[in-house]
């Protein structure tokens, strides 16, 4: 089917996408790499000089750097844990014979379509606000002291908001996978006397493994880049308590006008993302080839 003619045509048809993505990938990244070895501050654009590894050293020895790496890790793993476990539970629940399944699905999926600044501001002002939030009202109703979420538990607060946004995604994908599980298999297992827990561990969970890997892979890519939720709630604080790597680089680059430092941080972020991607792809690869 693929003659020389169609092969050439196919190449021409792919060219625009490939070239655009190549440029998009190489040019900015090369610039970041170049800037990372320069002393370059946007406030003094005349004084640009070669910096060697100073920017890396500067970024690497900054105590905020390690805290931001740690925060990134806690944020990603925390949200993954909540969304995967919660997603499985909710997907199993919706998969039961319930009345109004369609509407329940719509309600559960909705947070995914809420843009990050809106999601974060709703939670910040109307749910978690220590004076006027719903949680504060609830605490007062029970006679408890309201929690000042963003001051006392800044990172946890961000985790809760981001988990709320991604829980629908995990649920929807796991539900889709769940509904493709063969009903006859379930019945057979039931007749063999397997109880609900056994059926879940030996039948449902293996069936979901592929969907779970996909959820983890895709969410990790997006969760490494969490930004707007932090910007409108804690702004990274107090101190650096809720600053992830993305936010730290943003802070260095845009608020500190430090092009060199921001670029060095950017390169570190790329390296870390690649390490994560490598392990994820390897772990997922096996699962996806099935």
């Amino acid at each position: 089917m693929a003659t020389q003619n169609t092969k050439t045509l196919a190449r021409v048809m792919m060219a625009p996408s490939v070239i655009l993505l190549l440029i998009w990938m190489i040019v900015p990244l090369a610039m970041t790499l170049y800037y990372s070895f320069q002393n370059y501050n946007l406030l003094t654009p005349m004084n640009v000089s070669f910096a060697g590894f100073f920017n890396y050293q500067y970024f690497y020895t900054d105590p905020a750097f390690f805290q931001s790496i740690w925060n990134t890790l806690v944020l990603v793993l925390g949200v993954l844990a909540i969304t995967v476990i919660g997603g499985i539970a909710i997907a199993l629940l919706i998969d039961q014979p319930i009345f109004g399944q369609g509407i329940v699905r719509i309600l559960v999926i909705s947070p995914f379509f809420v843009m990050p600044p809106v999601a974060a501001l709703i939670w910040k002002n109307m749910i978690m606000h220590p004076g006027y939030g719903v949680l504060a009202d609830l605490a007062q109703f029970f006679g408890a002291q309201p929690i000042d979420w963003f001051a006392q538990y800044p990172l946890l607060s961000v985790i809760i908001i981001v988990a709320w946004q991604w829980l629908p995604f995990a649920t929807l994908i796991l539900l889709t996978a769940l509904q493709s599980l063969d009903g006859e298999q379930k019945e057979a297992a039931e007749m063999d006397g397997a109880n609900a827990v056994q059926r879940f561990i030996h039948l449902t969970l293996p069936h979901l493994s592929r969907a779970i890997t996909v959820v983890i892979l895709i969410q990790t890519i997006f969760l490494l880049g969490v930004y707007a939720e932090i910007l409108v709630t804690t702004n990274g604080g107090p101190g650096y308590a809720s600053t992830n790597l993305t936010f730290l680089i943003y802070r260095t680059a845009r608020l500190g006008y430090d092009v060199g430092g921001g670029a060095a941080g950017g390169i570190i972020a790329v390296v870390l993302a690649n390490i994560v991607a490598f392990f994820l792809m390897r772990a997922v690869g096996k699962n996806l080839d099935k």
């Binding site: 890519i221 880049g225 943003y250 790329v270």
Partner: peptide, 28 residues
């Protein structure tokens, strides 16, 4: 008109999504 390299190109395209946006914030 898939070729041997089609899968690789697709995977490569996907991998561009893994580049952290913030890493290219300044150049952009």
């Amino acid at each position: 008109a898939p070729t041997k390299r089609t899968k690789d190109i697709l995977m490569w395209m996907l991998s561009t999504k893994m580049m952290p946006s913030v890493a290219v914030l300044l150049p952009i």
